Simulated assay, not measured.
Amino acid sequence: MPNIDGQLTVASFFSGAGLLDYSLMNELKIIWANEVTPAAAESYRANVGDHIHVGDINQIVSADIPYADIYVGCPPCQDYSSIGNNEGEEGERGSLIWTYFEHIKVNRPPVFLFENVIGLMRQHKVTFEKMLSMFKQSGYNVNWQILNACHYDTAQDRHRVFVVGVRKDLGFTFRFPGEILSISKTVYDAIGDLPPASGEIPNHLATWTSPSPERIKDVMMNPRKQFRGMRRLDWYRESPTLTAHIAKDGREFLHPSENRRLTVRECLRIMGTPDSYVFPDKVPLSHQYRAVGNGVAHNVGLALGKAIKEQLGQVTLQNSLF
């Protein structure tokens, strides 16, 4: 079974700032990654490793990707999101699911993991079913499931669809990890112990640029009918889904008791990401927020990484990954 230091290896696509890879590192060895945005890649490099390559995935030749036991890919979701472009596979970003598919089809890794917004399998059901069918025709046993981060000890109601394919010659179909059955984690559990947002803790600095205190008060006192509205988080409930839109305007995710948007650290905490993950100061604030909104909740990544490792570990030498 190919591995490095006894660990199964991973090639990561659409890696962003590495939030998913940061959780997978606990169980797996990430050896290669690709990201098109330099700022996101800078954050990845600082927290995950120097193995990230910056560039357009459409320009990468499959043969140049090193062998890995597992391919991990979270293609851009804007074209499948109800609050995004919603152009589906016809969109420039939406078509990237097929680029990921082609690399898998050519290199045939033992296992692949795919993640996206649930809009892909709801508003774009035809595309989703076509994708599943093509993976199966390419020689994979495929299983998919919608996972909600709040069922994995995370203070956020965050639904995402995950697809895992196992090469048919390995003789099994992936079983998704069970939910963590416990009392729901609240926003207070996640960020209640943080000190004032003065910057003493990395990525924990309050900014007033968007929205301003005046705008917060105005909109809350004078609600607009066709306005997504200010959304103050409740200390004792989970947060609604954090989205990349917070990079443009934080009005939808206000601190539970202060008149300001959440800090990046608070957003990371609500994703379940450990404080050991730190965005470099030189990475623009907008990129930091966007990276969090585009990420995978930490505990969901941990559970998936552990399940993949355990199930691949049961493959015998006679049914090896070669």
Rank of each mutant, 00 (worst) to 15 (best):
Q7I: 03
Q7G: 02
T9W: 13
V10L: 06
G16Y: 04
G16K: 00
L19V: 06
E27S: 13
E42T: 10
Y44H: 04
V48C: 14
H51K: 09
I52H: 01
G55L: 11
I70M: 01
I70Q: 02
Y71V: 09
C77W: 01
G84K: 08
Y100F: 15
Y100T: 08
P110N: 11
I118Q: 06
I118N: 01
E129G: 03
K130L: 07
S133Y: 11
V142Q: 14
H151D: 14
D153H: 09
R158Y: 12
R167P: 08
G171D: 09
R175Y: 01
P177V: 04
E179R: 09
I180E: 02
D193V: 08
P196A: 09
A197E: 08
S198W: 05
E200N: 14
H204W: 09
W208C: 00
P211H: 13
K217A: 15
V219C: 11
K225I: 14
Q226C: 10
Y236Q: 07
R237G: 00
R237A: 13
E238S: 09
A244R: 12
E252G: 15
F253L: 13
E258N: 04
E258T: 02
R260T: 05
L268D: 06
F279A: 02
K282F: 09
P284Y: 03
L285N: 06
S286L: 06
S286H: 08
Q288M: 14
V292F: 08
V300A: 07
K309G: 01
Q311C: 06
Q311L: 07
V315N: 13
Q318N: 13
